[in-house]
Every structure is written in structure tokens, then in C-alpha cells.
């Protein structure tokens, strides 16, 4: 049980300064931790704070190490394990380009409707769909589109937030 691999989503608030992302990524590569997904953008312009959301996996001991190692980086303000700290919402955005004509094109459009994907670009031989959803919904959509002429997919990686009124 102790050595079971767990998947965790961790949110990190950092000073938006040069090198901060390199510090975080260097920590993971240098210590041999996994990064399954990582997103980063400034969330507070006045105080120059960025929020990093990362999905990682490891044993319980490794996950605790990752959080402690992140916490000791000097520009890190806070580290939250969203997986441990109660329910949270996780979303990913994907742009998916599908090329083709005829039945496949119609089927792609029909499935996009079911997944509530938006068409953000259309030509006579292609669509770009925009889809927001959980990682598994995006996986499913991309899987289906692969059979219908998918030529390109671009995904943001996970952003996440804990449920309820409490702030980060």
C-alpha cells in the first residue's frame, strides 16, 4: 500500500521572476520526479505572481518530498496539494484540427456537438475544434477524432482549483 503510485495535482504560487520555471522544472529533472502536465501563467499582475499547476505521480513518500522540495524554493509562496485537500475542479483546453471530407467530416462535426466542442476555424476540408473538459474527456475526444482525420492537437495541460469559497 505504502508503495502504491498516486497521481496528484499540485498548485504552486510563485514570484513571476526570471528563472522561476527553470527552478521548478530543474527540481523535477534533477531529482527524477515525473511531470505529467504543467501549466503556468501570471495570475496577479500587481504583485507579479504566477500560478503553476502540475500533475505528478509517485509513491506517497515521493509526493511529500516533491511538495517539501517545491516549498523550499526561495521564490515559492505557497504549495497546495489539490488532490489531498478535498474536492477540486480540473480542466484542460484543447485545439484539435481534423481534415477530411464527406462522411468523416460530418461525423466529426456531430461528435464535436456531443462533446460541446466549438468550431473556431473552418475550411472546406478542415475544422479546428476548441474543447474544454477534464483530461479524460479531452483524451476521449482526441481518440475519436484520430479515426476521423485528426492532423494536429494542442493541449494546455491541467488547470485546477479547489471547490468551495476558500481561496488559495
Amino acid at each position: 500500500m505504502e508503495n502504491a503510485i498516486e497521481k496528484h495535482t499540485i498548485a504552486v504560487l510563485v514570484d513571476n521572476e526570471p528563472g522561476v520555471l527553470a527552478r521548478v522544472i530543474g527540481l523535477f529533472s534533477g531529482r527524477g520526479y515525473n511531470i505529467e502536465s504543467l501549466t503556468v501563467a501570471e495570475v496577479n499582475n500587481a504583485d507579479h505572481l504566477s500560478r503553476i499547476t502540475l500533475v505528478t505521480s509517485g509513491t506517497r513518500m515521493i509526493i511529500e518530498q516533491i511538495k517539501a522540495q517545491l516549498g523550499r524554493l526561495v521564490p515559492v509562496h505557497r504549495v497546495h496539494d489539490l488532490t489531498d485537500e478535498g474536492p477540486s475542479v480540473e480542466r484542460e483546453l484543447a485545439l484539435v484540427k481534423v481534415a477530411g471530407t464527406g462522411d468523416k467530416r460530418i461525423e466529426a462535426l456531430r461528435l464535436a456537438d456531443i462533446f460541446k466542442a466549438k468550431v473556431v476555424d473552418a475550411t472546406l476540408t478542415s475544422f479546428i475544434f476548441e474543447l474544454t473538459g477534464t483530461t479524460s474527456q479531452v483524451d476521449d475526444f482526441v481518440g475519436l477524432m484520430t479515426q476521423l482525420g485528426l492532423v494536429e492537437a494542442s493541449r494546455t495541460g491541467v488547470v485546477a482549483m479547489s471547490k468551495g469559497p476558500a481561496a488559495f
Binding site: M61, E64, Q65, A68, Q69, G71, R72
Partner: peptide
């Protein structure tokens, strides 16, 4: 003083 030293090698 370093939380990352705790439970790193030995529980």
C-alpha cells in the same frame, strides 16, 4: 529546519 529532509530517506 528543512522540511524536505524529513521522511526523505527514512520514515
Amino acid at each position: 529546519i528543512d522540511p524536505s529532509s524529513i521522511n526523505k530517506n527514512v520514515a
